[in-house]
Design a protein around this nucleic acid. Structure first.
Length: 908
RNA sequence: GGACGGCUAGCUCAGUUGGUUAGAGCGACUGGUUUACACCCAGUAGGUCACAGGUUCGAGUCCUGUGCCGUCCACCA
């Protein structure tokens, strides 16, 4: 074995063998319980980020743990076509070639985009393999696959038939760069510092008299069709019904009263531009106002804006209108103003509220979706996200699902040629289209990407085709066991999947019939949702490509190994808290693997005979009569660790899992047990038993760790002869209760006092080492100690003497009846310990040290005495707490006394 | 404007129903070629638990308020 662990060769080799052996295949198996996860599909042309590493490592841990525990496990991978993002990239590339999408035409463009996707796509799936992800790759799904597309269309048609889908001319969020409508969720509000302009409007029946309006968008004045005041605003009792002159594109517009106007903002008057503001649009509807749409789809102004504004971009027009107003004397004031502006998530430009005809979805099964989470049929980890989820559902708005793109699922609606499209009589809605296609035109738009990915848990498993669902095991694997995703897509994806599952899984149910709880439980797409944190850089900023602060995970794998990366990232990922990335943690992950590797190397060096080493065989090799207190202690720690880790895995507390394993493996096993066993191994007494105990600990550690660091654990599993020809993937670490039962059957009964004793002895050893170290004797193993202790303590010390001597690095520890003179002393739970120094003791320094100790003991004692003298404490506190305090007091008083003795011995 | 999260050692974080003297890793410092591991071992220093009140015999932990940082939601032009 190499001195340092070399992950690269191991990882590639093992991954290949796992895959070729079909370890990751997820197949229904009536003999076993099911465990399933569907991957949150990444953008097909994306590359692996640290966020993916975190997310997919967690999923892999869950999948691998499930396999160990005997579940038939499916982790279903796939990718998303990412409508806007992909189309934008393809268009950019076309532009570089001097072409645009219209040159290619719809068919040509889609062909081109597919080629581009196939060329650049799927990289991320290869990267996930490098990370060790145990996905069933044969079941990889892409949202534009023919079967998946059928499912998307089928869902649309069903929703249409049940009255959930409708077409309407409404205010939508328009992205002038992508030139498509967006859903509310795709709009990000950003605080902006802009200007608030005060503009005057002249009353037409009183020339020279003006009304004043504050606006942030003077470029829309040409679209004003009214001024509005609040009906109960006492400042202007007589304005309603009169008229003002629009200062740009002059026209006479009415003054109306509407309670949506905020009296206290600006001048208390609102200009109404129904085409360019959602609130204005509503007010316009209420008052049957004209709609003047000034903008083109790219955000430039059209001919209705009039000269000189038509043709200008909206921001250019803002400046131009301000100048125009200023020169007319209509601009009264201009002040800095902070407000929130909605930006397009993808294109990062301000969205334009725009009136257009789109397809909308009234969400199905909203009430049931709320119930599913509020009743705990779906559990959120951390639980607090359920509040966010429920709040959103309480205020849910219809979903604009049509996108003016070509890349995506084309909406399965056809319009009778030459007839008005707004009339449903001229519609044909079906998956396969009309039988006389020559008489129809298909809708040009595609569906929002999320309107395909919300079907992910069912459509990846064959829905809605009966034979496909059966073949792919939908009923076996559904509801999936866990979903692992970021809270940023709780609305985009999680909530919508829940509603889709409730609506589509199982028999179609009438829209007006509330699903029963039993039905909800069967239809929900997953049982647990684990929300990861967001990975931030060392400065706390979100990792992003544009900031360039995100390391390439592949580089990290190259440097530290996939196991190292996985271990590192999981050790810093507290449940649902944001994660501060630091490469040092990844380094620690690597170091951990190396430690594991070297412990195994040590084990092989002690004895490299190959033998059968299943759990039972190992336990059989333990001779109960040869067990010493350290054996008892480590066996008990193993039992506790098995239970603790099991509990922590169940609660998705992965960083605690690792902490628990770390403590057992590194502190207890390596630093203590193994160091002490060295002497035993040399002397040969109880060596067989000691090796068996080591094997047992090591074996269980590998099993516990395997979900997190699959490669090295599998490699060592085989190298140490634990496998019996079988992969670690299918072996359960078991729990403490079962292990104790096995122990008992072999006559091994770990003594629980031994554990406490070991901890006390370790504390003693630490103090003794410190005593040496402070005198630069750390390296001298010939030093001699004396101890002054009562019979009971002396007996314990004698029992542990070999461990103590070898751990401390000392030659003797002899009992004395009185404090020896002139020696540095140490007062411990085991009595006073004296370090025999032939020379070089500085009595003054030793005295100072002991007096400092004395002081701190006195402080502790007085605080306990104070507590105990408080009648309220002794009466009200539980007896065990009071007894504890009393014991503590006695112990510290004894220590105080001994310390005083030691001081006087020093100067005697 | 609402809601949620965070504030504990120089840094990153543990601290589960209130109960002994608040922990770990990293970093710093000191010392180590003890044949598993320097990707290691041993030791040392370092904390008024953001602040102010309250409940309690007892508060890092529970309650109220404040501050700062972060996130999400919201039609104040």
């Amino acid at each position: 074995m190499e001195k340092a662990y070399q992950p690269k060769e191991v990882e590639d080799r093992l991954y290949q063998s796992w895959e070729s052996e079909g370890s990751f295949k997820g197949r229904p198996d009536a003999e076993k319980p099911a465990y399933s996860i569907v991957i949150p599909p990444p953008n097909v042309t994306g590359v692996l980020t640290m966020g993916h590493v975190l997310n997919n490592t967690i999923q892999d841990i869950l999948a691998r743990r499930a396999r160990q525990l005997g579940h038939s496990t499916l982790w279903l991978p796939g990718t998303d076509h990412a409508g806007i993002a992909t189309q934008t990239k393809v268009e950019q590339q076309l532009r570089k070639e001097g072409k645009n999408k219209r040159d290619l035409g719809r068919e040509g463009f889609i062909e081109h985009a597919k080629e581009w996707r196939d060329k650049h796509g799927g990289i991320i799936l290869k990267q996930l393999r490098k990370l060790g992800c145990s996905c069933d790759w044969e079941r990889t799904v892409h949202t534009l696959d023919p079967e998946y597309s059928q499912a998307v269309l089928e869902a649309f048609v069903r929703l249409f038939e049940n009255g959930y889908v409708y077409r309407g001319k409404r205010m939508v969020n328009w992205c002038p760069v992508s030139r498509t409508a967006l859903s509310d969720e795709e709009v990000i509000m950003k605080p902006q510092s802009g200007k608030l302009y005060k503009v005057r409007y002249e009353l037409t029946d009183a020339p020279g008299e003006y009304l004043f309006v504050s606006t942030t968008r003077p470029e829309t004045i040409m679209g004003d069709v009214a001024l509005a005041i609040h009906p109960e605003d006492e400042r202007w009792p007589n304005l309603k019904g009169r008229k003002v002159r629009r200062p740009l594109q002059p026209a006479e517009i009415p003054i109306i009263a509407d309670s949506a106007v905020e009296k206290n903002f600006g001048t208390g008057m609102l200009k109404i531009t129904p085409a360019h503001d959602p609130l204005d649009f509503e007010i316009g509807l209420r008052h049957e106002l004209e709609i003047i749409d000034l903008f083109n789809e790219d955000g430039s102004l059209n001919e209705l804006a009039g000269p000189p504004f038509s043709g200008m971009d909206r921001f250019e027009a803002r400046k131009a209108t301000v100048e125009q107003l200023r020169s007319q004397g209509d601009l009264i004031d201009e002040e800095d103003h902070a407000n929130n502006v909605g930006f397009s998530e993808r294109a990062d430009v301000p969205i334009e509220p725009r009136l257009s005809e789109q397809w909308f979805l009234r969400y199905p099964r909203v009430a049931e979706a709320k119930r599913a989470v509020s009743e705990g049929f779906i559990r959120y980890f951390p639980e607090r996200w359920s509040k966010t989820y429920l709040h959103w559902l309480d205020n849910i708005q219809d979903w604009c699902i049509s996108r003016q793109l070509w890349w995506g699922h084309r909406i399965p609606v056809w319009y009778r040629k030459g007839q008005p499209r707004s009339d449903p009589k001229n519609w044909h809605v079906s998956v396969n289209g009309p039988e006389d296609p020559e008489n129809w035109d298909q809708d040009e738009d595609v569906l929002d990407t999320w309107a395909s990915s919300w079907l992910w848990p069912i459509a990846t498993m064959g829905w809605p085709e009966d034979h496909a669902m059966k073949e792919q095991g939908l009923d076996y694997f559904y509801p999936t066991s866990a979903l692992v995703t970021g809270p940023d897509i709780i609305f985009f994806w999680v909530a919508r999947m829940i509603m889709a599952g409730l609506e589509f899984k199982g028999e179609q149910m009438d829209a007006n019939t509330m699903l029963t709880d039993d039905e909800i439980k069967k239809r929900i797409p997953f049982r647990d949702v684990y929300f990861t944190g967001i990975i931030r850089d060392a400065k706390g900023r979100k990792m992003s490509k544009s900031l360039g602060n995100s390391p390439d995970p592949l580089d990290l794998i190259e440097k530290y190994g996939a196991d190292g990366l996985r271990h590192g990232i999981m050790s810093i990922a507290p449940k649902g808290q944001d994660i501060r990335f630091s490469e040092e943690r990844i380094e620690q992950g690597r170091n951990f693997c190396n430690k594991l590797w070297n412990l195994s190397r040590f084990r092989r060096m002690a004895d490299d005979s190959d033998r059968e080493s299943g759990l039972v065989e190992i336990i059989d090799r333990i001779d109960p009569d040869q067990l010493n207190p350290d054996d008892h202690a480590i066996l008990l720690r193993l039992v506790h660790t098995l239970d603790e880790v099991d509990r922590l895995y169940k609660g998705y507390e992965f960083n605690s899992v690792l902490q628990s394993i770390y403590r057992f493996f590194w502190n207890d096993l390596c630093d203590w047990y193994l160091e002490n066993s060295k002497a035993r191994m040399r002397e040969g007494e109880g060596k067989e038993t000691c090796l068996a105990v080591q094997d047992l600990c090591l074996r269980q550690v590998l099993l516990l760790l395997h979900p997190v660091t699959p490669f090295i654990t599998e490699e060592l599993w085989k190298a140490l002869g634990f496998s019996g020809g079988k992969s670690i993937q299918w072996q359960s670490p078991g729990n403490g209760v079962d292990l104790l039962a096995l122990f008992d059957a072999s006559g091994i009964r770990p003594d629980s006092d031994a554990l406490e004793e070991m901890l006390a002895v370790r504390e003693l050893v630490t103090s003794m080492r410190a005593l040496k170290a402070e005198r630069n004797l750390a390296n001298n193993n010939k030093v001699e100690f004396f101890h002054l202790a009562d019979e009971g303590k002396a007996e314990v010390l004698a029992r542990h003497a070999p461990s103590i001597l070898s751990s401390v690095g000392a030659a003797t520890l002899r009992r004395v009846d009185a404090p020896p003179t002139g020696m540095p002393a140490l007062v411990t739970a085991f009595g006073s310990i004296y370090l025999d120094l032939t020379s070089g003791v500085d009595p003054a320094a030793e005295r100072a040290r002991l007096e400092k100790e004395l002081q701190s003991l006195a402080q502790i004692i007085s605080s306990i005495e104070k507590k105990l003298s408080n009648a309220a404490f002794t009466e009200k506190a539980p007896t065990q707490v009071v007894d504890g305090a009393k014991r503590q007091l006695a112990e510290n008083q004894a220590k105080l006394k001994e310390t005083e003795d030691a001081i006087s011995a020093l100067i005697r």
